[in-house]
Design a protein around this nucleic acid. Structure first.
Lengths: 212, 212
DNA sequence: TGACACATACCAACCGGTCGGTATTAATTG
DNA sequence: CAATTAATACCGACCGGTTGGTATGTGTCA
């Protein structure tokens, strides 16, 4: 049995797909710079020739990996249960709860590829930086859509707009990952998500009176 | 004129001190892995011989740089004006405002060295990861002391404790830096700090002020 | 005189990237 | 229909520059 493994054909595992999957694992644990092309080839089980057949440079692989990660995330979140919640506020809380729930196990499995890469690349690899920015922007836009609905129904107590609040959720999550890596403990991240959730409840929560 | 530039003598600039200062600049813009020993030597204006006279390995330099960064930060914050504020809550808000105020100019000048390093090192350089964790912990402890005072006076509406909230402030700040790097715009960071401030006001302050 | 702070020269391993080649499949052609 | 052509996917030896690290020398000061 033979497949063609074309550029946008995902049903078989060509070298390109395998390299992209390997990039997610390896770069998230070693970082972009420390990850060598040989590392990627070994992890993907392909040769160097295959690597440079599909990607002109290591940076191009990084850019493709950011898009790959983005697509994967989009698939996970767009089909996640919380998305079916009617009330916008509850859906927003559902998003945070969902993000909290998928934290666990090994760090490279749940942390953010683009958050890792952009720290190393922002000053030295402009194209990679932009790819990471697009990836974050794309996910934030999904959150922003929810926030915008909440604001439409309950007003904007922040005065900073839906986009700003959506980006803040991403910042809190990215920062949570850094703490988890530093302490080598995923719970440091879930703890942060609890605070983020409380902030949103505080902003939009039902009781107009100050709680506690 | 000649100085000894001893290990703990800071009044003159020996090779060690210059290398540590260079590390702050270079690693914050290129990341730890992409920063070579030669980069550091060139930026510090010293030779490779001097480098390996003071540090046995590149990792040891990284560990020392984390401590150096920590000491620098400690100097800045312990003498900052907000520290003199009597009311603990106002002092806590003063901390966030101060952090917001020092954001600006070039990204490598105000972002966090250890937040950058730990992302690359957590899985591959345990000793460096621990040094970064200590550095974050040290700064968080300063914040925790303020938060503890606030909680002593006003109670803990989070139920997560002073330490957890202090760590969350660090997560929000670290995440703010990632957004700033991704968008190449310091304002992305200040925007996040505004949300963090609002969370603290929401927890301890008067009911959400009718800003806008 | 000897410990310290640096300088110079050097190295082996490793790195990203190149290159000539092969295997397989699809389209073209006589 | 077989033979030819062309394109794609992949292989792995190889290359020149770079990397972290070493070995050894030199000047200085207590």
């Amino acid at each position: 049995m033979q497949e063609r493994g074309g550029k946008s054909d995902g049903r078989s595992k060509g070298a390109r797909e395998r390299l992209l999957d390997a990039a997610l694992r390896v770069i998230r644990s070693k970082g972009y710079s420390a990850t060598t092309v040989d590392d990627l080839c070994a992890a993907a089980g392909v040769t160097k020739g295959a690597f440079f057949h599909h990607f002109r440079t290591k940076e191009e692989l990084g850019i493709a990996a950011a898009a790959h990660f983005s697509a994967m995330a989009d698939g996970i979140f767009s089909t996640a249960p919380f998305m079916a919640i009617d009330d916008p506020f509850e859906r927003l809380i559902g998003y945070v709860d969902f993000r909290r729930a998928i934290i666990g196990g090994e760090l490279p499995a749940f942390t953010c590829l683009v958050g890792t890469m952009v720290q190393e690349a922002y000053a030295t690899h402009p194209a990679l930086r932009e790819a990471c920015a697009r990836s974050i922007e794309e996910h934030a836009a999904m959150v922003e859509a929810i926030v915008a609905e909440v604001i439409a129904a309950r007003g904007d107590p922040t005065g900073q707009g839906a986009r700003s609040l959506a980006l803040y959720t991403q910042a809190a999550i990215q920062g949570a990952f850094i703490l988890a890596k530093a302490s080598n403990d995923p719970q440091a991240a879930t703890d942060c998500l609890d605070h983020l959730r409380r902030y949103l409840e505080c902003l939009f929560g039902a009781p107009p009176a100050p709680t506690v």
